[in-house]
Amino acid sequence: MQINKTENVYPCTVCNSVFSQKINLKSHMRVHTREKPYSCKVCGSAFSHSSNLKTHIRVHTGEKPYSCEICLVAFSDKSSLKNHMMIHTGEKPFHCEICGSSFSRKSHLKSHSRRHSGEKPFACNVCGSSFSENSTLRKHLLTHTGLKPYSCTVCGLSYFDESSLKRHIRLHTGEKSYICEDCGAAFSVISTLKSHRRTHTGEKPYSCQICDMAFAENSTLTKHIRIHTGEKPYRCQICPSAFSRNSHLKAHIRTHTGEKPYSCEFCNAAFSDNSNLKTHKRIHTHEKPYSCKVCGSAFSQKSNLETHIRTHKKNLEDLLSHAA
């Protein structure tokens, strides 16, 4: 006669996870208690599992026992090797449910998802600015220290991080290695190429959670959200004025300095911002892009159209009053 042997079951009293061995339950409980009994004797870092401490110690020893069989790059832990192998295989198992983008790492998907949600969990403890990436926060913190350790050997300009210096150097070399497959346009930075590609695809992956408007650029979404929040982070150091966009602040500062960098090619009139120049040039071109939907009258400035529309409203009110 066969006897069914019942396996021992060890349930977690906090989250109801079940384990077949008591030692595994004990290890799991540290997730809840945040206990970290394994400490590094070199730097004092503490870990909840001995295996994590063992991996960490390799940071100090430089040991990298896991090697890629394809390119021989070595890693200190097996998970890093596994992530690296996806570069060769092209495997991208983590998919964005909103736009369909795929990623080789879960952490990359998590970072990408913040572009859709607008979540910025990494806050600067100096000025309160928030960022979607911890790496962006670290770069931002350097702006408070004033340190710019990366200098251009051509013109002497300095930058907070190495990637910014590399992008800058391409201005001198003229290198544009990122090519658009649709129109052949070339770019020095891959992020600019990605943004450009959306002009062909019409993709707008960055959505406002308040009004559902969608944008091709995350930076444009950030600016748009300030319409809802009323946030004006750019402050004039001369007067109390504040602005939602840095470009608006720059234009405002010219009212103090008197600078007028935008000149009319027809009459040499100068303006402090480009939008005023565009409006002015319509005097010469006779362009009237603002049309009245009631009578068809056209105007060179939006404010003139708005004033004109009021004449229709007034005429309608007069007709209604006479009819009454």
Rank of each mutant, 00 (worst) to 15 (best):
residue 179 I to M: 12
residue 177 S to V: 15
residue 119 E to H: 05
residue 199 T to C: 05
residue 241 S to Y: 06
residue 97 E to A: 12
residue 244 S to A: 13
residue 40 C to F: 11
residue 290 Y to P: 01
residue 111 S to H: 11
residue 209 Q to Y: 05
residue 215 F to K: 02
residue 228 H to W: 01
residue 50 S to Q: 06
residue 59 V to L: 13
residue 211 C to H: 00
residue 275 S to G: 08
residue 70 I to R: 03
residue 286 H to F: 15
residue 48 S to Y: 02
residue 192 T to F: 11
residue 222 T to V: 10
residue 107 S to D: 05
residue 316 L to S: 11
residue 215 F to W: 02
residue 23 I to F: 01
residue 51 S to L: 03
residue 238 I to Y: 01
residue 170 R to Y: 01
residue 32 H to T: 01
residue 183 C to H: 09
residue 299 F to K: 02
residue 221 L to F: 11
residue 150 Y to L: 06
residue 63 E to T: 06
residue 292 C to R: 04
residue 30 R to Q: 14
residue 79 S to C: 09
residue 73 V to F: 15
residue 214 A to L: 12
residue 247 S to Q: 06
residue 166 K to N: 11
residue 237 Q to I: 07
residue 137 L to F: 01
residue 221 L to P: 07
residue 222 T to Q: 10
residue 35 E to M: 01
residue 106 K to M: 09
residue 161 D to H: 05
residue 230 G to E: 09
residue 141 L to W: 03
residue 290 Y to R: 00
residue 291 S to R: 15
residue 60 H to A: 00
residue 197 R to W: 11
residue 44 G to W: 08
residue 191 S to D: 07
residue 185 A to C: 14
residue 247 S to L: 04
residue 302 K to H: 15
residue 283 I to S: 04
residue 260 K to H: 12
residue 179 I to H: 14
residue 321 S to V: 01
residue 208 C to R: 08
residue 65 P to H: 03
residue 288 K to Q: 15
residue 115 R to D: 06
residue 153 T to W: 15
residue 132 S to I: 03
residue 139 K to Y: 05
residue 174 G to K: 09
residue 30 R to A: 13
residue 134 N to L: 14
residue 218 N to E: 14
residue 155 C to M: 02
residue 176 K to G: 10
residue 312 H to Y: 06
residue 183 C to A: 08
residue 31 V to S: 00
residue 73 V to G: 13
residue 98 I to M: 00
residue 317 E to Q: 02
residue 134 N to P: 08
residue 238 I to D: 03
residue 262 Y to P: 03
residue 153 T to N: 15
residue 116 H to E: 02
residue 148 K to Q: 04
residue 230 G to M: 10
residue 281 K to M: 15
residue 215 F to I: 03
residue 64 K to G: 06
residue 245 R to V: 12
residue 300 S to G: 14
residue 16 N to V: 08
residue 219 S to P: 09
residue 33 T to F: 09
residue 42 V to D: 07
residue 293 K to T: 09
residue 319 L to D: 15
residue 184 G to C: 10
residue 129 S to F: 13
residue 256 H to C: 11
residue 90 G to R: 00
residue 214 A to I: 11
residue 274 N to H: 06
residue 293 K to E: 12
residue 101 S to W: 08
residue 236 C to P: 09
residue 135 S to R: 04
residue 192 T to N: 15
residue 139 K to C: 08
residue 15 C to P: 07
residue 27 S to I: 13
residue 16 N to Y: 08
residue 257 T to W: 13
residue 244 S to H: 05
residue 304 N to S: 09
residue 33 T to N: 10
residue 48 S to V: 01
residue 92 K to Q: 09
residue 136 T to D: 14
residue 70 I to P: 00
residue 97 E to V: 10
residue 263 S to V: 13
residue 159 Y to M: 03
residue 84 H to K: 02
residue 308 H to N: 00
